[in-house]
Computed example of a mutant assay.
Amino acid sequence: MVKVADVRRSYGTGPAAVHALRGVSFEIGRGELVALKGRSGSGKTTLLNLVGGLDSPDQGTITVDGTDLAGLGENGLLALRRDRVGFIFQSFGLIPILTAAENVGVPMRLRKADPREREERVALLLAMVGLADHAEQRPGELSGGQQQRVAIARALANRPALLIADEPTGQLDAETGLAVMELLRAVVRGEGVTALVATHDAQLLGLADRVLELSDGEIIEH
């Protein structure tokens, strides 16, 4: 599903340049849940942004679902992020004025899905994440764990092949974080999704099929 080969990414030039990634290579099979660990500043977020098509490498190649990202123009990358990659962020990223159901439906509105299909998919996803009874509540009326569940449902709205999550439990207490990670694990199995999840929580790492460790921009452990 994902193939990363000798990827390098730096910010700035000259002596002040920051080398975020230094020749990173790995592969992720279909249906795998792979955890990415490493200290703050190790390059995790940079790597996730590159794999998700939010940024481009200085060197190396990234292939997602058989597509070389370097061959995509801006419109191609937009389509990739809309239709084939789902994103989950530490800060939830929900739209405050929209209900949980409306937030989940946003990606389907962007691709102009049929309204009936959209409503059915939203109801299914909210039930899947255990929030069927909270569809009409806005983010401010939900707990942190509930908001992250809405964010997971939204990420799955367009049936992505790849799910990318950047510290999805970072703002949650340990018990809630574990419940959210177990939900991600179940979603990967149930929906047949591949997932790359950055996390520093040792308990959560145990739920992954495989762990990649980044240190100073390099993979040091598989």
Score class of each variant (00 low, 15 high):
45 T>Q: 00
72 L>W: 14
147 Q>D: 04
93 G>F: 12
8 R>N: 11
126 L>Y: 02
90 Q>L: 11
85 V>F: 00
78 L>A: 15
54 L>Y: 05
127 A>W: 01
34 V>S: 02
96 P>I: 11
80 L>M: 14
40 S>L: 11
132 A>T: 12
172 L>S: 05
119 E>S: 09
212 L>N: 01
115 P>A: 01
210 R>A: 08
155 A>C: 07
182 E>P: 01
12 G>D: 08
41 G>Q: 04
99 T>R: 05
136 E>D: 14
217 G>L: 09
10 S>N: 10
127 A>F: 03
27 E>I: 05
145 G>E: 07
9 R>P: 04
134 H>W: 13
30 R>Q: 15
215 S>E: 15
124 L>C: 02
62 I>V: 15
196 L>G: 06
164 I>G: 01
69 L>A: 10
144 G>M: 03
91 S>C: 00
29 G>F: 00
53 G>Y: 04
123 A>I: 11
166 D>H: 00
197 V>P: 00
183 L>G: 03
197 V>M: 01
73 G>K: 06
175 E>N: 10
95 I>N: 12
95 I>M: 13
99 T>C: 00
131 L>C: 10
41 G>H: 08
27 E>H: 03
182 E>G: 06
163 L>F: 02
120 E>N: 04
163 L>S: 10
100 A>Y: 06
173 D>L: 13
206 G>Q: 10
200 H>G: 05
86 G>E: 09
54 L>H: 07
80 L>V: 05
165 A>R: 06
43 G>D: 11
204 L>Q: 14
92 F>A: 02
60 G>R: 05
6 D>M: 01
53 G>N: 08
215 S>A: 14
214 L>I: 10
219 I>R: 06
203 Q>P: 00
146 Q>H: 04
5 A>S: 15
8 R>D: 04
210 R>S: 02
97 I>S: 15
204 L>V: 15
51 V>I: 14
140 G>D: 03
92 F>R: 11
52 G>Y: 11
103 N>S: 06
201 D>G: 09
